[in-house]
Each structure stands twice: as structure tokens, then as C-alpha cells.
């Protein structure tokens, strides 16, 4: 376990610096116009941020209202007896439930969770790892099957949800292992 924690920590620390130096160096050696390519990509990044801004307003305002009205406390109070024994902070549940349905929705909820509990809280960390390790399952299935006219999904939904559930369980377990005070 000690080794695992060290290895996982090392990946986290080294990944970005290595990529930040390695990718441009590698690309330059292959005669790519690295600066021009970077600027082109950065433009796209700005567009992404602009595109998700209205979704963030929609979600954060609604969740803010719900929280301000005491709804979140009420919900947590109901769910805590079921979830706490499993090591799942009740605050994570909204992110987990919306994650398979909507990417921008779950991003907004995750942002709200970080704001409310602090980004380095156990709940926000579980939410972060889970959001990064699962996908917008129903959206992907609808788009991909829809594009080729498949009507019967057969076992696609249960298989994809099994993966999501595994990702969620793994997130809870790993975050507990590494950061449980």
C-alpha cells in the first residue's frame, strides 16, 4: 500500500511537467510549428470554456438556490445513514447520479461541491476522481448507436453502467486509501 501511494503520487507530480516539456520538444524535433500549433489549440480551449459557461450558470444557480434553501442539508440528512457506512460522503451523490447523463451538468455540480466543501475535502476529491474516470454514458450510447440506426442496444447499457459503478467504487476506495485523515 505504501508503494502504491508513492507510485500514484509520483504520477500526479510528474505527469504535467513531463508533458509540458516533453511534447513541445518531441514535436519540434519532428519539425512541427510548435508555437503555431499551440495557439491554434489554445483558441479551441477558450471556445470550450465559453461554451460551458452558460451551463455552469444554470447548474450553479439552481444548486445554489437548492443549497441556500436548506435542500442539500435535508437530502444529506436522509442519505447519510445509508451512504456513510459505505464511506461515501452524501455530498458526492448528486455528481455521481448526474455524471452518466450530462457532462456539463456534472461539471457544474462538481464545481459546486468543491466550492461548498473545499477542493481538497474528501468528498470533493472523490467527486473529482470519479468525474475523471467515468463518461457521459447515456449521451455517448445515444449518439453512437443513433448515428448508425441501431434500435436495440442489447447489453450495452448494463455493461456501460457496470463500468461506471466500478469507477465510482474505485474512486471512493482509492481516495479513502490515500487521503483518509
Amino acid at each position: 500500500m505504501e508503494f502504491l501511494a508513492k507510485a500514484v503520487g509520483a504520477i500526479s507530480t510528474w505527469a504535467i511537467p513531463l508533458l509540458l516539456a516533453g511534447i513541445p520538444a518531441y514535436a519540434f524535433a519532428r519539425r512541427v510549428d510548435v508555437y503555431g500549433a499551440f495557439v491554434e489549440g489554445a483558441k479551441e480551449g477558450l471556445q470550450v470554456a465559453l461554451r460551458i459557461a452558460p451551463y455552469l450558470v444554470a447548474i450553479l444557480a439552481a444548486v445554489g438556490a437548492f443549497r441556500g434553501a436548506g435542500g442539500m442539508d435535508r437530502l444529506s440528512g436522509w442519505l447519510a445513514p445509508v451512504l456513510s457506512p459505505l464511506g461515501i460522503p452524501p455530498e458526492v451523490l448528486p455528481v455521481a447520479l448526474v455524471r452518466p447523463l450530462s457532462g456539463s451538468g456534472s461539471t457544474g455540480l462538481l464545481a459546486d461541491l468543491m466550492e461548498a466543501e473545499g477542493p481538497d475535502s474528501l468528498a470533493a476529491r472523490i467527486g473529482a476522481v470519479m468525474a475523471g474516470s467515468t463518461e457521459t454514458t447515456f449521451y455517448v450510447l445515444a449518439v453512437y448507436f443513433g448515428a448508425v440506426g441501431i434500435r436495440r442496444y442489447r447489453h450495452a447499457v448494463p455493461a456501460a453502467l457496470a463500468a461506471d459503478l466500478a469507477g465510482f467504487a474505485a474512486s471512493v476506495a482509492i481516495v479513502h486509501l490515500l487521503w483518509k485523515p
Binding site: A7, A10, A15, A128, V129, M130, G132, A160
Partner: peptide, 23 residues
């Protein structure tokens, strides 16, 4: 901010393996 990279990688590997096995 980046200290979730390692844990995410581990969790996503597990979820992909479970997805393949389930399918």
C-alpha cells in the same frame, strides 16, 4: 490541483477493465 491524476488513472483503468469484462 494535479494530485488526482494518479488516482484517476487507477480508477479509470479499473472501470475500463470492468466494462470489458461485463461486455
Amino acid at each position: 490541483p494535479t494530485d488526482v491524476i494518479g488516482p484517476t488513472l487507477l480508477a479509470t483503468t479499473l472501470s475500463t477493465l470492468v466494462g470489458i469484462a461485463a461486455a
